[in-house]
């Protein structure tokens, strides 16, 4: 598992209009971080920059003390050893569930199968191994998407609104299960969400972004015990989401 450090990271699509401003945070190996904030605050952009799907305007991203992106270096997404789970799940529709999970594993066929089956069992979707994505429910698809992202044993797992489209009871169940699996596997993870409960219940650390800036950061416990003044501010950010 890997550690992550984001330093002075800024990003803008249009000159002079920043989406992210001077973002700084770090994450130890095996820690889970939640990035919280309203829609359009820049949290998905931050995740995409860490994944290498977009290039920051300035600043740097370091994994295990190695620079993977700054004004001089850019390590391609495929070489960053990062796992990604998106809200749309983006399962490969032409592949069965087992083949989806095996897709990113670079091992022998039998080893791939073994790893994929272990993860499917862990996420309780092994009985659908030979089904196609459209044949299972959205909650099951989400479990498969997380299993697929974890299968190649990434240094860091990035999850963008992973439970955004699921109903509340399913979300609660998946949150608990996913946190347990991440912790059991000592996986470093970043979860982007606009859901306060997601952030608090799943992560060790939370940062709150508003208008491209970090307005609050700390442990999940700190965030739940903030001053009344800050609480009002945080409440308005969350309610805007």
């Amino acid at each position: 598992m890997a550690s992550l450090e984001v330093k002075d990271l800024s990003h803008s699509y249009i000159r002079g209009k920043s989406v992210l401003k001077e973002i700084n945070f770090s994450l130890e190996a095996g820690e889970i971080l939640s990035i919280l904030g309203p829609s359009g605050c820049g949290k998905t952009t931050l995740l995409r920059i860490i994944a290498g799907l977009e290039k920051e305007t300035s600043g740097s991203v370091n994994i295990d003390d190695h620079i993977i992106s700054d004004h001089l270096h850019t390590v391609l997404t495929e070489n960053r050893n990062i796992g990604l789970v998106v809200q749309e799940r983006a399962l490969f529709p032409h592949l069965t569930i087992i083949n989806n999970v095996m897709f990113g594993i670079k091992e022998t066929k039998s080893k791939k199968y073994e790893i994929a089956m272990r993860l499917l069992k862990l996420f309780k979707v092994d009985k659908y191994a030979y089904n196609f994505p459209n044949e299972i429910s959205s909650g099951e698809q989400q479990r498969v998407a997380i299993a697929r992202a974890m299968a190649p044993n990434p240094g860091i797992l990035l999850m963008d609104e992973p439970f955004g489209t699921l109903d509340q009871s399913l979300t609660h169940q998946l949150r608990t299960e996913t946190r347990k699996i991440l912790k059991d596997n000592n996986t470093t993870a970043i979860i982007v969400s606009h859901d306060f409960d997601d952030a608090i219940s799943m992560s060790d650390k939370v940062i709150v972004i508003d208008d491209g800036q970090i307005v609050q950061s700390g442990s999940a416990k700190d965030i739940t015990h903030i001053s009344p003044e800050k609480s009002v501010k945080l409440g308005s950010i969350i309610s805007n989401s």
Binding site: A51, V86, E88, R148
Partner: peptide, 27 residues
């Protein structure tokens, strides 16, 4: 084809020709 599929494929070390042949062409 949802563009997020490409993003995920790239994080699974599949890009360029592999992305085209293994993901896009079948779809």
């Amino acid at each position: 084809i949802n563009e997020r599929i490409d993003d995920v494929a790239r994080t699974l070390k599949t890009s360029g020709w592999s992305l085209l042949s293994q993901v896009h062409l079948p779809l």
